[in-house]
Amino acid sequence: MIPRVFIILFSLFFTFSFAQKKKKARDLLAEIHQYPHGGINKDFKPVPLQKRLTRFPFDKAVKVKIISYNLNFIGSAVPYLPKPPVHIQSDSISLKKYYENFKKPVALENLIKDINHKDIQESKTLTLTEISELSDVLYNTCKKYYIAYTSKNGCFFPRNAILFYDEDDNVFAYFEICFECLGIESFPKEMMDPIETCEFLYPDLKKFFKSKGLTTEYVSKK
């Protein structure tokens, strides 16, 4: 008798648990449909300026600069090198010299190490008002929307960056941005929450860069 009662109770418990899980799944689906990805977040409250500027790296920065670089290179893991002139194609020495002298894309970390920053093509040091505007774009844009997921493209060929300088005028942190691939990476790593790097960030951030006179995409050499 006891085993039979136990089996009945177990069956009832299992049925109840399964029903609860189905209810939770239905509730979750209903919530997703109620708040679709990219929908306006009616409960959005912007992070105030004072709180934004207490976040690293803004809290440690004496100067903030935005820059453009690698504007004349087609984005690729292996940079495109044009075919050498016909008259040197059969001359191994001239051919080697041609490729050695050909200008190559620069990595941001190497650009920063160069004290002259000679590979920076465009730059602007931001005023306090512009820093406020930038931090608002970075930390408030994605929170205006319901974000169900974030995605990352395979390509990443950054042409723009945000540099943060310490009191010795050294870059201690940066964001590098690829507007063509919709990607942002940072040093140190993970300075922004993944949700803050949603696809809705890039149009506003691109608009900010352009409003300060910086180019954000490939520029063909004439």
Rank of each mutant, 00 (worst) to 15 (best):
I88P: 10
Q89L: 05
S90I: 11
D91P: 06
S92N: 09
I93H: 12
I93M: 09
K97M: 06
E100M: 07
E100N: 13
K103R: 13
P105N: 06
P105F: 08
K113N: 09
K118R: 11
Q121G: 01
Q121F: 08
Q121L: 14
E122P: 08
E122T: 03
T125C: 01
T127D: 11
E130P: 02
L134W: 06
D136W: 05
V137H: 09
L138G: 09
T141R: 11
C142T: 08
K143L: 11
K143G: 15
K144V: 00
Y145A: 02
Y149F: 15
Y149Q: 13
K152V: 10
G154W: 10
F157L: 01
F157E: 09
A161P: 08
F164K: 08
Y165P: 07
A173M: 09
F179C: 07
E180L: 07
L182W: 08
L182D: 11
I184N: 05
E185P: 00
E185W: 12
S186I: 04
S186E: 02
F187I: 01
F187T: 04
M191F: 06
D193E: 13
D193Y: 10
D193L: 15
I195P: 03
F200A: 10
L201V: 06
Y202M: 07
K207H: 05
F208I: 05
F209D: 11
F209I: 00
K212W: 07
G213D: 15
